[in-house]
Amino acid sequence: MSDHRPQRVRVTGPPRYASGPRSRIGDVHDQTPLGDVFLRSLLKEQLALAIRVLVLVGLTLGLLPLVFHLWPGLADLEVAGLPVAWVVLGGLVYPFLLLMGWRYVRSVERNERDFTDLVAGSERPTE
């Protein structure tokens, strides 16, 4: 029985820093031309998605001060008895930001899922 005792394995936690030579797995993956293309496209897609959200915020919230600066008369406009600036910046803006965040998370997770399927389907990255 004792002859078949499994070999001892040293169990350690993950290293604290990513720097320095550690794992060969990632390096191998880095140098695969196909993997390189996949990663480049994932990075580009994620950044494009982030920039789209930021541009949308810039074109909505970001333009509000300018609009009220150029057309001061807008400030006297009322919605349901309240000044329009208070309705927009005191209330509506929060569901708007949440909606933007929710849509971003949905898209970004779909990107990552597609990427995972693509990579896992064509070559095992960890092998």
Binding site: S23, I25, L39, Q46, R113, T116
Partner: peptide, 10 residues
């Protein structure tokens, strides 16, 4: 930028 499930460099 890689999802954790792929375990690249994680």
């Amino acid at each position: 930028h890689t999802p954790e499930v792929l375990e690249v460099g994680h």
